[in-house]
Write a protein that binds this DNA or RNA. Structure first.
Length: 877
RNA sequence: GAGCCAUUAGCUCAGUUGGUUUAGAGCACUAGCUUGACAGGCUAGGGGUCAUAGGUUCAAAUCCUAUAUGGCUCACCA
């Protein structure tokens, strides 16, 4: 066999095995008799490149899927991307602009051609990157929210909801993104505190020499004012009934109205009303029948209705308005002020409340079964604290604005009749025509006479169908794939899209297949840097995931991501995490090298210490498998990983291998060797969901004719009955070994120098591991005595007294001091136990079992104290 | 402003219906190791009055009430 390198080099190995898995189609699934295990990927943006959040998200999914596959389930993980209307359109517009092309000069069709080109060029990148991470997706099933099946599904659902009366069109105040020039939903607006100014502006009262002062943060909207409002209970303004005021700059005469919406405490108690540009003003405007003057163009510049500053941007207009007001002497004062400003999630531009015609989905009834499903536990949200958040949003849900004024996306299938605002809704143009003919009774009507709505649908209006549509469950609810794979199992995503996506998928699940879309929602944390800042391109605090994989290996990065990612908690990323993962891979690699390089001698007997170690490790592995299974069931993935990590590093490498390791350049017996390989294979299996690449590499070295050709196809190990007594005895042994090692270190005795150990046994001494102790600490002899030897260092394990005989190295005073410290601790402990037991109420009320434990503690402590006292006495002699 | 969640070692977190020795892990830290698998390592070790103040209980990190601090969600006052 060729030399195995001392350092594990992940790069070539990972490339080799991923190719092998894909070539053999191991990740592909077809329906069969087995129980399915199904996850759908949260589709990343087609515009995106892999970032740290994806790494975490997909690592978790891959761990779950790989383990499910090993548990014998028919596992499928469906990959795909979404079309990300706003983000993609923005990128394409920007690209065109860099080529000197203005979007507005293109027809819709021409623009879409560019967008598709762009998508074909960039759309696959992120999925290719996921392969580097080891993602075991069924690539044959890759979907895109705008491919044929998914698009048709979206249109069918739109038509169906429209026909059910759940979709309506209407003028509403929406959140307008002036940069993307589209409406966005409430969920897409992020409010943050920003420093701004509060302007106090004087409005002249008509036919009086008096002024009324209003406070505003947006003086440019004065141009759209149609009233000034005060609270009807405010004594300061009672005299203003039926009065009018003059809007500055324009000298427009508007009424003073009275509405209890106005907070008397705030500002001046007078509120200017601009119904076209503020949601509250809009509602007040409706109540008081006010005129609504829209002063903005779609791009945020002022239009003709503003009369002045026409064509200027809204922020420039603000400056100009203030200057003008100052010129007119109408600014009373300007204060610094902090308020919440809403910005578009996609473009970060300040959201402009705008009245416009949009399409909405009525949510009130749709959410009901979705609320119940989570309430009843039919769907679990992990961690559970998000159940509240979900509930709260659902209870207060508002109608969903589903139209976007963009071209890239699913065009709304509403067709207007010629010269009319009347429309028909249909899945295809042909069907639309048919409906139009029915309505108009005009049989000469042609498709070209109809005008399709210009808007597209919100991207989430397609991704909310994802778990259904990836199996074609909207168009063909009876197809075998859908019947077999739906509902899916675990949805893994970040809490930030709980409403955007998760809640809406649940709604769609109960509206269409009338079944939950998934059973568990596992919400993982957000990847942040060490300073708890979210990773972002603009901050430049995010490492490039592919660089990390290159540097630490995909296995290393996966371990790094998982190690500190408890459910729902933030993950504070640091390079030390994948480094720890890489070091672990190296540890595994070297353990393997050690075993692989041993020479096997069939003629030698298995040494007794090896026989015992083999027995113990078997018990330990069995016990640990149960722990890991439980942790998986509870979605405690980072803990499951840590359990495997310690099993491998501490139990297998640090203890087991050290025990069975033959002397330098001596061969190992064939029995221990074979058993060790079997254990190593089990460990590789336990590791493989987390570190699939190194696990496969080792599997290929170790597999025999009875094993599967790839670890991907192998079965998750089954835990046989553990032997807790043996494990307990081993722990005692480990304690003794550690004590002896500490003595060597303390007294500067090299490992090579043999020592003699004497033991005074008390009750329940087991000699099972004595040979292990002897080997690990290089003892000449172990002997049992009744008298404390002189000139020895002592320690206590489980009330057995251990003495290492040392002729010249004993510092009696130091020994006494050490034992006195131990005595002090024991006495303190005894004291606390005594306090409990002497408490009558405790003895009377506590369960017998608890009292029993306390009595045992007492007895143990007393025994220990008397031993320690004797030892001090002996030393003082 | 309303609601929810958290606060345990330097850092990140466990601690499962209150009782397994006066609290555990990983990383970091300290000391000692040219030990033939591994310095990406080995061995040993230090480190916490469980945010604060009360309360319930025989018994509290764990239950209750306040307070403080941090976070999340929703709403929003110009």
């Amino acid at each position: 066999m060729k030399e195995i390198p001392a350092k594990y080099e992940a790069r070539d190995i990972e490339k080799k095995w991923y190719q092998y898995w894909v070539d053999n189609n191991y990740f592909h699934s077809e329906p069969d008799d087995r129980e399915p295990y199904v996850n759908v990927i949260p589709p990343p943006n087609v515009t995106g490149v892999l970032h740290m959040g994806h790494m975490l998200n997909n690592t978790i999914q891959d761990v779950l899927v790989r383990r499910a596959r090993m548990l014998g389930k028919n596992a499928v993980w469906v990959p795909g991307t979404d079309h990300a209307s706003i983000a993609t359109e923005a990128k394409v517009v920007a690209k065109l602009k860099s080529e000197g092309i203005d979007k507005n000069t293109l027809s819709r069709e021409e623009f879409l051609e560019h967008a598709w080109d762009w998508t074909e060029k960039h759309g696959g990148i992120i999925l290719e990157q996921l392969k580097k991470l080891g993602a075991s997706c069924d690539w044959d099933r890759t979907c895109f929210t705008m491919d044929e099946t998914r698009s048709k599904s979206v249109l069918r659902v739109f038509v169906d909801l429209y026909e059910k009366g759940l979709i309506y069109r209407g003028v509403r105040m929406v959140n307008w993104d002036t940069q993307a020039q589209t409406a966005v939903s409430d969920e897409e607006v992020i409010y943050t505190e920003e420093n701004s100014k509060l302007y106090y502006v004087k409005y002249k009262i008509q036919d009086e020499d008096n002024y009324l002062v209003i406070a505003t943060t947006r003086p440019e909207t004065i141009l759209g004012d149609t009233a000034v409002c005060v609270n009807p209970d405010d004594p300061r303004f009672k005299h203003l009934k039926d009065k009018k005021v003059i809007v500055p700059i324009l000298d427009r005469v508007v009424p003073v109205i009275f509405d209890s919406y106005v907070d008397m405490e705030f500002g001046t108690g007078c509120l200017k009303i601009t119904p076209a540009h503020d949601i509250n003003d809009y509602e007040i405007g409706i109540r008081h029948n006010l005129e609504s003057i829209d002063i903005f163009n779609d791009d945020g510049t002022l239009n003709k209705s503003a009369q002045v500053f026409v064509g200027e941007d809204r922020f420039k207009a603000r400056k100009l308005a203030v200057e003008k007001l100052e010129e007119l002497g109408l600014i009373e004062k300007i204060e610094d002020y902090t308020n919440k400003v809403g910005r578009s999630e996609r473009t970060n531009s300040v959201i402009e409340p705008k009245l416009s015609m949009q399409w909405f989905l009525k949510m009130e009834d749709l959410v009901k079964p979705a609320i119940k499903a989570v309430e009843d536990g039919e769907i679990n949200i992990i961690p559970g604290k998000f159940k509240n958040v979900y509930r709260h949003w659902m209870d207060n849900v508002r109608d969903w604005c589903i139209s976007r004024q963009l071209w890239w996306g699913h065009r709304i299938p509403a067709y207007y009749l010629p010269n009319s605002n009347e429309f028909v809704v249909a899945e295809t143009e042909e069907q639309a025509l048919q409906k139009a003919v029915e309505i108009t009774k005009n049989t000469n009507l042609k498709i070209s006479d109809l005008r399709q709505d210009n808007d597209v649908l919100d991207t989430w209006f397609s991704s909310w169908l994802w778990p259904i549509s990836v199996f074609d469950g909207i168009l063909k609810p009876e197809n075998p794939d859908f019947k077999y794979y739906y509902p899916t199992n675990d949805l893994v995503t970040a809490p930030e899209i709980l409403f955007f996506w998760v809640a809406r998928m649940i709604i769609a699940g109960y509206e269409y297949p009338k079944q939950k879309p998934f059973t568990n929602v596992y919400l993982h944390g957000i990847v942040r840097d060490k300073l708890r800042r979210k990773m972002s391109k603009s901050l430049g605090n995010s490492p490039d995931p592919l660089d990390l994989i290159d540097k630490y290996g995909a296995d290393g990065v996966r371990v790094g991501m998982l190690l500190c990612s408890p459910a729902g908690g933030d993950l504070l990323y640091d390079d030390s995490l994948p480094e720890q993962g890489r070091n672990f891979a190296n540890k595994i690699w070297n353990a393997f090298r050690l075993i692989k390089n041993w020479e096997i001698d069939k003629n030698i007997q298995q040494p007794e210490h090896s026989k015992i170690a083999v027995e113990w490790l078997d018990a330990k592995i069995n016990e640990t498998i149960e722990v890991i299974n439980k942790q998986f069931d509870d979605f405690r993935l980072s803990e499951a990983l840590m359990t495997v990590y310690k099993l491998f590093w501490d139990d297998f490498s640090a203890w087991y291998l050290e025990i069975i390791k033959p002397e330098y350049q001596k061969p190992i017996d064939s029995k221990t060797y074979a058993q060790s390989i079997e254990y190593f294979k089990k460990l590789a299996l336990l590791l493989s969901p987390f570190m699939p690449f190194i696990a496969e590499e080792l599997w290929q070295f170790m597999k025999n004719d009875n094993d599967t050709e790839s670890i991907v196809l192998a079965k998750w190990p089954i835990s046989e009955k553990g032997n807790s007594k043996l494990i307990d005895e081993f722990n005692t042994c480990a304690d003794v070994v550690a004590n002896i090692r500490a003595i060597r270190q303390d007294k500067n005795i090299p490992q090579k120098e043999k020592l003699n150990l004497q033991i005074i046994r008390h009750d329940n001494y087991s000699d099972k591991f004595d040979l292990v102790i002897k080997k690990l600490t290089n003892l000449e002899t172990i002997s049992f005595v009744n008298e404390k030897p002189e000139m020895a260092v002592s320690f206590l394990v489980k009330n057995h007294e251990y003495f290492i005989l040392l002729e010249n190295l004993i510092d009696k005073d130091a020994e006494i001091k050490k034992i006195e410290e131990e005595l002090k601790y024991a006495e303190g402990f005894l004291n606390s136990v005594n306090k409990k037991l002497s408490n009558e109420k405790f003895v009377a009320n506590a369960p017998e079992k608890v009292i029993e434990i306390e009595r045992k503690k007492l007895a143990d402590a007393e025994a220990k104290i008397s031993i320690l006292k004797e030892q001090i006495q002996a030393l003082k002699k």
